[in-house]
Design a protein around this nucleic acid. Sequence first.
RNA 1: GGGCGAUUAACUCAGUGGCUAGAGUGCUACCUUCACACGGUAGAAGUCGGAGGUUCAAAUCCUCUAUCGCCCA
Length: 1079
Amino acid sequence: MTKKLSKHYDFSRAQEIVYKSWLDNGSMSALPDERKNRYVIMMPLPNVTGALHMGHAMDNIMQDLFIRWHRMLGDNTLWMPGADHAGIATQAVVEKRLFELEGKTRHDIGRQGLIERIRAWKDQYLTRIISQQQGMGCSCDWKLHRFTMDEVCTRAVREAFFRFFKDGLVFRGNRLVNWDCHLQTAISDDEIVHEKIKGHFWHVRYPVVDPESNEPDYVTVATTRPETMLGDTAVAIHPDPEGALNEAVKEIEGKLKLASKKDRPEIESELEQIKKRFETHLPRLLKLVEMTRQKRMVVLPLLERKIPLILDEWAKPELGSGCVKITPAHDANDYEVWLKHRQEIDIINLLNPDGTYNENAGPYAGLDRFEVRKRVLTDLESRGLMENVEDREIEIGHSDRSKTPIELYLSKQWFIKMGDVEGGILFGAGTKKQFSAPGLAQAAIDAVNPEWKSPGGRHLIFHPDPERYASTYKNWLAEKRDWCISRQLWWGHQIPIWHGLVKREQLNDIQSLVLNSEGERLWSWITDEEGNLVNPAEVSGSGPFNLLVCIRNKEEEKKIIPTLEPAGLKRDPDVLDTWFSSALWPFSTLGWPDPESADVGKGRRFLGSQSGHPHYLDYYYPGSCLVTDRGIITLWVARMLIMGLYLQGDVPFTDCFIHATIQDGKGERMSKSKGNGIDPNDMVAEYGADAMRYVLCDMQTGTQDIRLPVQAISPYTGERVDLATAKHGRTIFTYICPRTGKEFDVLGTIKELPKAKVTSDRFDAGRAFCTKLWNATRFALINLGQYEYKPILLIDLESEDRWILSRLSRAIEAVTRQLKQYNPSAAIGAARNFFWSELCDWYLEFIKPRLKDQHKAFVARTVLAFAIDLVLRLFHPFVPFITESLWEMLNEQAPVRGLEEELTHTGVLISSPWPDSFKRFQSKNIEGEFDLIQQVIRSIRNLRVRYQVPPATKLEAVIKARGELVERFGHSNHILKNMANLNKLTVGEDVKRPALAALQVEGDMEIYLKGVLNPEKEKEKLMKQKEQLNRNLESIKKKLSNQKFIHKAPRQVVAQEKKRLEDLQTQLELVNRNLKVFS
RNA sequence: GGGCGAUUAACUCAGUGGCUAGAGUGCUACCUUCACACGGUAGAAGUCGGAGGUUCAAAUCCUCUAUCGCCCA
């Protein structure tokens, strides 16, 4: 059968068969058992927004690598797969499609209608995502697959929210959101496209109220959005304009000192202008500061409203007039100012949700924002309040979805309190791991402190660069900014709070309901104006009261809603931030709060205890390692830590491996929506899963970013077009085929253009590797013949066997060490280096003669089978399909492998043991000997190339070397003759230089190749060598003559240099002596 | 604007103070040798972004600077 093995690996067939066998054997199942050593990875949930791209592939393959490695190490492994409903992103995609295809908005089809559409979308993409993951070989337990909106997760979300609420950590407050006036929804920062456009900077005068004779009668403020002035509630001035100007001068002077000549004039003029301000602006600003202290006011033109002057550092004396208008409800910076001055100034919202101005805009009420701008400008002009207008490039945020300009809009949102809380917070309440910490954020910060330990004795470490990523994490958490958890969406977990104004008498009904429910099943509070929560039982007054009721679960809802709704309480329409549910992922998936009663759905694995083993939550929480991209350290990792600590009393995982971000050839982040995303399925189809995995593993070094140049396959010629250099067509998603000059699309955005597949020739290397591995194993299988294992003694081994075993042992050590250090590239590099450069390039060649020799074949076969077995194990976590296929063939040919003892295996590679390092095989002597042999063989090959002697021509060689070396060559004579294709080899200390022979000086050896000679060539070569030697000698001599080096450098380094000097001198003498011969 | 990081061969990347700075791809020459041409052998190719500093010694540490990327505002 093996003889029929094709030269190339048929990956598509192999992948299908192998994956099915893993599924059938239950090789990927996670079941609690008696093992104490577990390894748990919770998959970073892909969004159901769309299909996966190469960034996800990297993430999944890194996880699979570590899961497979730990499975082979004998750990009980769980890799939990799943997907995220991704609220905003998914709803946006579906809404966009709805509008494009049917011209409808969500309001046309209603909440239920939209949710159904999104569910259908989700089902479609979830299927696609899973097929992509299975296609690349992910060995997760699919029977555990979770979705953030399935029953198990939904229950966990409710429970978690309830606990936060009950502990007083949820509150409602104001917040500026990005408002899309067209779609009438808040949108996230990622959905804003920033564009630079040519705009204007209008300088407007605000008259001072009752100015005295020595006072200015107006202040000038500048704005790019004049219509927002209607919402101004103050004008700010820097509290210390002189100091601020001095600072500015200092800074520019500092810049000037370091500036290049070219940049100087510009900086000098800038400096000049600021210095002038001490005369032109400062007196006026100082006067205004004084007036501010006297609580003076200015008049807001058009509305004739009096607004105060305030002191705030946000006003920059070095810019504009030095004064700045404050519009808290429609500008993020101004809102910050308002927060600081909320006792002194108002906040005025001007907008209606549809983008028209409301009653606060006085005469402008009811007009659209664009119309308001026009009228405000005309009115200011006509009143002579417009000082001047500048042209200026301004940045405007547009909604990615409606393409209309974004407004900032003040709205009520729900928050979780991240800061410290008086009296601290109890973490892990009700578990065996209770502890107290000052606040949610603080607890998560503590968790990365190496000194800190959870009650379970754990903390979190980032890899591969612990400090860098921990600092990203800590810096973000240290701000302790409250977490806004509400979103004005329909797709997601609706906030389980019912609220509204309740009259005194109805309050009693609700209160009795609270009292009637059992224990802690229900919790409710009344908010006061500040958003603080008060127990209804303690409320006095006649109302109405603003009441919030949080209901813990669906069963309770049924009982309580009939009372709540008639009383005027309505469920909050908002849904929770997607990250709220994904932050619970490490335990919501395991059935928390109660695995025994978790409703897992059809065909899924039961999470309760079975066969006397603990249930999933007890057994698999806390997990081991989170594998993700650095982009979500704050959004997700930090929040998982908070949730884990707060609800379980322990970190959700002890290690966090941050892998590289994949970029395209231009250095831009890869994403499907940019058109530079590669679909892993396409690569799997073109190159095979293993080839793709091989390259991704090889690319995963320590650095943050990896460029993966992408090419489109031209639909016209089938040739590859590099997208980093290709010319764009009419949009950024279309390119011009260089051969035909015709345009094609990479995303399918323009229907009349053909769509090109995106690929990358970077994967060629992976395919080449797979072919090599395939053929090396094929070679072994062919040559094993009727091999039957018998134990052999180490004394039976030839020197090349001992050499390859020594190298193999070191390779196993290196791969294992690099995996421990989270360096997949170095790990696969060590494995490849052994396999390709040592096993294939040398050892297989060494043993070819023995394999043909009946008497010598057995030992060679034994070592060969042994080495191939271990190579397949070493490569399995990286390239699982091909290794598993080859494993099956190897088992057929040679079911038992081993040297002195049999190697154990399970029949399938996925669950066979990771190799021990066989340290006893390591020998420096034998490795040194083979270094020498390789050196000689290379020299002879080199001579052949120089004299163009075909490799097939047999030659005679003579080596002159020191006595100890001569002895070494003694027992490897046959190897040298074989590898260098010699018919005769003479080695000795005193051998004579053959008359007609080319020469290579290698260290202190002289290697002669008989039968060819060109004195000129020899001379040239030796001269070159001499030059090189002299250069090196000079630098060493210089070093050694430096007394400081002799005295200060470590003794070892000095000794090493001295030794090198000697070696080089010996070699130089040899070269010189031979030069004389040819002259 | 703040933070983090990158800049090393044509390309993609290793290399955290000490041999002549490495690998893979690509390139050049030769080789269809009975595992593999998705292969083999040999080779060419780098003033380590720039400037300054610390050190006996710098790609590596420090300062500044340029360019690019990411996160946050």
